[in-house]
Computed example of a mutant assay.
Amino acid sequence: MKKRVILYILSVIGIVILNCLYVNFEFMVMLVMVIVIPLFSYIIFSISKHGMKIFVKINNSVVSVGDNIDVRIIEGGNSLFGPPEGVLKAQIRYSNDGNTKQAEVEIGSGSMRECSLDFKPKHIGIVNIYFTELKVTDYIRFFSTTYDYNCIRKAIVFPQKKDGSFRAVDYQNEEDEFVLSFEETDNTEVLDLREFADGDSVNKIHWKLSMNSDDFIVRQYGEEVEKRNTIIVDLTKVKTDKFRDKLDLIYEAAYLLGLAYLEDGISARFVVWDGLEYDITSFDFDDEAGLEKALLEVMCIKCETDSLMHLNYVITQNSINLGQYPVLITMQDYESDIYDIINVEKDNLDRIFNIKDGAD
């Protein structure tokens, strides 16, 4: 824009000099055109930017990794000349991570203009799309006005579901409060440990022993056991370039384990450390819709350094009952006598969660 102004001023000065040195009709016409054309463009620009309206919407707010989030930007106005051209600045970032991607969307000419911002998310989580600034210009891009445009849209990126689809979850208007309320379990004694057999429930798998074995190891009980399992999700932010990839595996493992429990008729809960509340919180689910909602709440929790340390401290100090089968899903090297541990970096998730299909 500045280069155009400088070039314009130099052109006017040059034409004025030519008119002074040579009294010539052609030079006079050139001087008039150089002055009138920008003036006419400015008048149209001043009229067209009044009554201008911008609409932003997301056509697909629930997607899986790799699917396209289609953000539609529609510009309109009450002016006879139509709204001016412009550039809308956007920022895209995940709610659980501070990394930001910048983007600009150009709005072209016409009485009603529509364009799109295509974004293919590479990771699981809540995607926040902020539109921060709108800059409009006249048709010869000589005059401009910049507006602060505070607009935000959100989209959910879920793990890939088995049938490739997810129900649309209305999460933006939810005001439910989740309270940590662990249920008491019975004290049924473990009678034996044995290899996994057809018909066994994933509820009985001893995950810690199974990680170090070629076969799945299950607990043999004498009586019925408690029917709500606890899945502890470690959201510790690790300093590595592949953190987002590993976090995707955390979410995927939590979702798939929740599905495995539900297929066996077992209710469960996610337990995480919430740094904003400085306490642990839980999200119960009893069906697939509840699982998706619970996973959504987990994805809203911001990842922080030492989340697992805080979570483990609160659980041990307060002697919280985690149920009969607490499973910790983590990307860190961690040992515990309290939880069975699934390390997404080392353990084969395909092997773990294909039990129903008879995988070894």
Rank of each mutant, 00 (worst) to 15 (best):
M1V: 09
K3H: 05
L7G: 15
Y8Q: 10
S11D: 01
G14T: 00
I15W: 13
I17R: 02
I17K: 00
F27P: 10
M28L: 14
M28Q: 14
V29I: 12
L31V: 09
V32G: 02
I35V: 11
V36R: 06
I37T: 11
I37M: 13
F40P: 03
F40W: 07
Y42K: 14
I44A: 04
I44N: 08
S46I: 08
S48R: 08
H50R: 12
H50E: 15
V56Y: 05
I58W: 10
S61K: 01
V62W: 00
V65E: 05
N68V: 06
N68Q: 08
I69G: 00
I73M: 02
I73K: 04
E75C: 00
G76Y: 01
S79W: 06
S79P: 05
P84E: 09
K89M: 05
K89N: 08
R93H: 05
N96R: 05
N96C: 02
G98T: 13
Q102K: 12
A103M: 08
G108N: 09
G108D: 13
G108Y: 08
G110P: 03
S111Q: 14
E114N: 01
D118L: 15
K120V: 13
H123R: 13
Y130C: 00
F131K: 11
T132H: 04
T132Y: 10
T137K: 03
Y139L: 00
R141L: 06
R141H: 04
R141S: 07
T145L: 10
D148I: 00
I152V: 05
A155T: 07
Q160N: 13
S165T: 00
D170I: 01
Q172W: 11
E174F: 07
D176C: 13
L180Y: 01
E184I: 15
T185H: 08
E189H: 08
L193F: 12
F196E: 11
F196A: 05
D200N: 00
D200Y: 01
V202P: 06
W207C: 14
S210G: 04
S213E: 08
F216Y: 07
V218Q: 10
Q220E: 15
Q220A: 15
Y221C: 05
G222P: 07
V225Q: 00
I231K: 02
V233Q: 00
D234L: 03
K239Q: 14
T240N: 06
K242Q: 12
L249Q: 06
I250D: 12
G258H: 09
L259F: 07
L262Y: 15
E263W: 05
G265F: 14
R269Y: 07
D279M: 10
D279C: 08
F283M: 03
D286T: 02
D287Q: 07
G290I: 08
K293Y: 04
C300S: 09
C303A: 02
D306K: 14
M309G: 01
H310S: 09
N312Y: 11
V314P: 07
I315P: 04
N318W: 11
S319C: 10
I320L: 10
G323F: 00
L328G: 03
I329A: 02
I329C: 06
M331H: 14
M331R: 13
Q332F: 09
Y334I: 09
D337R: 14
D337E: 15
Y339R: 07
Y339E: 11
Y339K: 08
D340W: 11
I342Y: 06
K356L: 13
K356T: 11
K356D: 09
K356M: 12
A359I: 14
D360N: 12
D360E: 12
